[in-house]
Lab assay of single mutants.
Amino acid sequence: MAAAAAAGAGPEMVRGQVFDVGPRYTNLSYIGEGAYGMVCSAYDNVNKVRVAIKKISPFEHQTYCQRTLREIKILLRFRHENIIGINDIIRAPTIEQMKDVYIVQDLMETDLYKLLKTQHLSNDHICYFLYQILRGLKYIHSANVLHRDLKPSNLLLNTTCDLKICDFGLARVADPDHDHTGFLTEYVATRWYRAPEIMLNSKGYTKSIDIWSVGCILAEMLSNRPIFPGKHYLDQLNHILGILGSPSQEDLNCIINLKARNYLLSLPHKNKVPWNRLFPNADSKALDLLDKMLTFNPHKRIEVEQALAHPYLEQYYDPSDEPIAEAPFKFDMELDDLPKEKLKELIFEETARFQPGYRS
């Protein structure tokens, strides 16, 4: 834990890192770190609560700039109880001085990944967590956004079992017609939660990839272990087919990539493993919904509104309290091709509203 900075004593240090967030945020305490930044909790002297502050230093890398800009653009436009918001952003007053960006968010005690390492969940908890994931996802999908990296560590939890989806750095506007060349190379989302079509096709992607990830998360809540822990690309596919069985001819016809289709045709026939054999203690309604989410063919996979209306979630289902976005989200430009200098300018502009004396 960093010592509390005395008023006016300059930035606090946390594990050798400068955290320049005073005077409003003090009493910093280390939480963890990701690929390009550290997260601390801090005391907000204005709202009198502890908050989470993520320090991001992305400006050396085009990919990190892209992810940072995506996350900020999306989260500043989203407003939903099951999606983490941005409360404040701290950065230098000029673009030349801006080396880091500090993002202030609600402090959540833990995440689903940490929880599943230590606790076996009751059916009631599984049901409530799944409902909140789908409630947040309904809003995301209504904005025409794909999260693309749903996994237990991106689901934040607090002691009252509130759940918030975080990390929109890989999110995209849904565009089933656009052929994202190089899709697989830039697709760094965790393999275990990846839909089979991501490994088999490169053309376009749809909201059904997020539903697949939610199915993987439900299976993990039922058993405290990942359902498809593939060691590499082909191993991942083999794990999936080992449980779902061989795809039907109709399902194979959806695979545009001939090499991928021929690979699947070359494999020995596998039978589907019954879900109640894998999860003998699970609620039968939970397994019915799991089956509809972990469907090989993305066109037959359940959609988020149908999933919310499934009998497993009937005690929570309330369409009048499951809000959607006001308007579909649009990125003005494809960020993939922009140089990091341009992305830095866009991050600077996007964060201006939090600067003292800002006038829109």
Results as ranks from 00 to 15, higher is better:
172 R>G: 12
245 G>M: 04
299 H>A: 05
71 E>K: 08
252 L>C: 08
264 L>V: 05
231 K>M: 14
342 K>R: 14
294 L>A: 11
267 L>F: 01
219 A>V: 12
279 F>S: 13
338 L>P: 05
49 V>F: 05
183 F>D: 08
340 K>V: 03
7 A>Q: 14
179 D>N: 14
185 T>A: 10
40 C>Q: 06
230 G>D: 14
128 Y>S: 07
301 R>D: 04
349 E>W: 00
153 S>Q: 09
38 M>Y: 10
258 L>V: 06
73 K>G: 14
124 D>Q: 08
107 L>F: 09
95 I>Q: 06
288 D>S: 02
204 G>C: 10
241 L>V: 05
171 A>V: 07
51 V>T: 01
76 L>I: 00
47 N>Y: 15
353 R>M: 14
4 A>Q: 13
53 I>K: 01
184 L>T: 10
78 F>A: 05
181 T>M: 07
292 K>L: 07
218 L>H: 09
233 Y>W: 01
61 H>L: 15
299 H>V: 13
341 E>K: 14
177 D>W: 06
120 H>C: 08
78 F>T: 05
260 A>R: 02
44 D>V: 10
149 D>R: 09
107 L>V: 05
269 H>G: 08
50 R>D: 05
99 K>Q: 11
185 T>G: 09
291 D>R: 10
236 Q>D: 07
360 S>Q: 14
86 I>F: 15
170 L>E: 09
108 M>R: 04
264 L>D: 04
54 K>D: 05
127 C>V: 11
152 P>V: 03
32 G>N: 02
194 R>Y: 12
90 I>R: 00
127 C>F: 14
101 V>H: 09
276 N>I: 15
80 H>C: 01
298 P>L: 09
162 D>T: 00
226 P>N: 00
17 Q>K: 12
155 L>T: 02
178 H>W: 10
323 P>A: 05
80 H>G: 06
108 M>G: 04
127 C>D: 06
289 L>H: 02
103 I>Q: 09
205 Y>Q: 11
162 D>M: 01
18 V>D: 15
321 D>G: 06
134 L>E: 08
28 L>A: 08
56 I>C: 06
354 F>H: 13
40 C>P: 00
256 I>Y: 07
252 L>R: 08
313 L>C: 01
118 T>V: 06
112 L>N: 02
72 I>V: 07
293 M>W: 01
72 I>G: 02
352 A>Y: 02
268 P>T: 14
81 E>T: 05
160 T>C: 13
170 L>Q: 14
59 F>G: 04
140 I>P: 03
117 K>W: 07
347 I>H: 07
59 F>R: 09
292 K>E: 06
108 M>L: 13
141 H>A: 05
144 N>T: 13
116 L>Q: 14
330 K>S: 05
83 I>S: 01
291 D>W: 05
141 H>K: 11
345 E>F: 00
172 R>Q: 14
257 N>I: 15
241 L>I: 11
31 I>C: 05
321 D>C: 06
2 A>N: 00
183 F>S: 13
125 H>L: 14
178 H>A: 06
148 R>V: 12
111 D>Y: 15
67 R>L: 05
265 L>K: 03
116 L>T: 04
343 L>Q: 15
179 D>Y: 15
12 E>P: 00
211 I>H: 13
324 I>D: 03
122 S>L: 09
327 A>N: 00
11 P>E: 14
283 D>T: 01
175 D>N: 13
255 I>Y: 10
130 L>S: 08
296 F>R: 09
65 C>H: 04
128 Y>K: 11
115 L>G: 01
133 I>W: 05
146 L>D: 08
264 L>S: 04
174 A>H: 05
84 I>V: 05
280 P>R: 11
102 Y>N: 15
140 I>G: 06
158 N>P: 06
91 R>T: 01
355 Q>S: 10
355 Q>V: 06
221 M>E: 05
36 Y>P: 05
200 L>A: 11
266 S>N: 10
54 K>M: 14
300 K>N: 15
46 V>H: 02
254 C>R: 09
206 T>F: 11
325 A>D: 00
345 E>M: 07
266 S>E: 02
183 F>G: 10
101 V>P: 03
201 N>M: 07
237 L>F: 09
324 I>W: 09
129 F>S: 11
298 P>Q: 02
350 E>I: 00
